[in-house]
Amino acid sequence: MPNFEFPASIKSRPVYGRLEPRKGKFHLMIADGEGAEALIELAAADGALMAKSHIIYIPRDTGAGFAEKLTALGPAQLYIGPSYPAAVPRLRRVLADAHMGLQVYLTGTEGLMGQAMNEAMAAGIPHSAIQTEHRGSLARRMQCVHCKGITEDVMTDPFVCSHCGLHLFVRDHYSRRLAAFQGVRVDAEDPGNIPDPVELYS
C-alpha cells in the first residue's frame, strides 16, 4: 500500500519518512497495524538487520495477518501485544538497558509513533535520530487544550472530547511531549454553533 501523502502543513506537524537500515549494534522496531509492511520492506533492504533487532508489534484491527510474516523475518526478539499501553512496561525495560548506538524505527499510526518516540526521547535518544514511517490509519491522537484529556483515534473535524464533552476543532499544531495534536473548542466565540463533522483529509 502506498504511503499517504499528508498535505503540506505548519512546522510543528511531524513529517514522516521511509525507514532505512542504519549502522548500529542493536535495533529496536515498534510498529502497529500496517506498519508491519514497512518492517518487512526494511528487512528486505538489509538481510543482516533482523538478527540484531527487537520488534514490538501491536496488530490492532488490521494486523492479525502479519504475525507469521514478522516471525519469518527472524528477528532476535519479537513481541506481539494486544495494545500499545500493554507494551509500554516492556518498552521501558528495553530502553533502560540500552546503549548508545541503538537505532529506533517507528512505523504505523501517528499515535503509536508519537507515543513510542516519547519513550525513546525520555530514555535519551534525540528525536531527530529516530526514524518514522507512517502506515495505515490516518486517525489522530488529540489533546483537549481545555481539560487536557487525550482522545485517541480521532477521524473527524470537529470531534467530541472523550473526557469533557466539548466539541473541538483539529489543529495541526503538534506536541512531541504529549504525542498529540491540539484540539480547541470550535464554538468558543459562538456557543452552540457547531459545524457538521467532516472526515479528516477529505
Partner: peptide, 12 residues
C-alpha cells in the same frame, strides 16, 4: 502544549 518545542515549532 508547547513545552519542549524548538523555536520554529512553537512559532508554527
Amino acid at each position: 502544549f508547547d513545552i519542549g518545542m524548538n523555536f520554529f515549532e512553537w512559532h508554527a
